[in-house]
């Protein structure tokens, strides 16, 4: 638990470190997107840029959630409560996107735009 003064003093350094990682992550994402030399995959935006960008974003978001929001040492109940939201949002985003995989949308989906 980070509730004792000792533990809090210790974790302040972690917070600094995580903050720095977040800054670096942001810079990497921007470099990949804007500087041609760092471009991944095809020339210009493509699925690899998308995957890389979202992966870095997910890592950053996880750092915020686990370190800043203390999910790394939180009670089990919180995982259930917040997890329920995450679970349902996957259902919403996943299934609506899946509904696009139908003949009437194929033209757009596979056209590469």
């Amino acid at each position: 638990m980070a509730d004792t003064p000792e533990a809090i003093r210790k974790s302040v350094r972690t917070y600094m470190f995580v903050g720095a990682v977040l800054f670096v992550g942001t810079i990497v994402t921007v470099l990949v997107a804007t500087v041609p030399a760092f471009d991944v995959g095809e020339h210009g935006f493509d699925k690899w840029d998308c995957i890389l960008g979202l992966t870095i974003a997910t890592i950053k978001a996880s750092l915020v959630a686990f370190i800043f929001m203390h999910l790394n040492h939180e009670k089990k109940a919180v995982y259930w409560l917040f997890g329920s939201g995450l679970c349902m949002v996957c259902s919403l985003a996943g299934l609506t996107a899946l509904a696009m995989y139908s003949p009437i949308f194929d033209k757009y989906f596979f056209s590469g735009h």
Partner: peptide, 8 residues
């Protein structure tokens, strides 16, 4: 929001 609206 930042990557999906500004960078993609």
């Amino acid at each position: 929001v930042f990557p999906i609206l500004y960078l993609m």
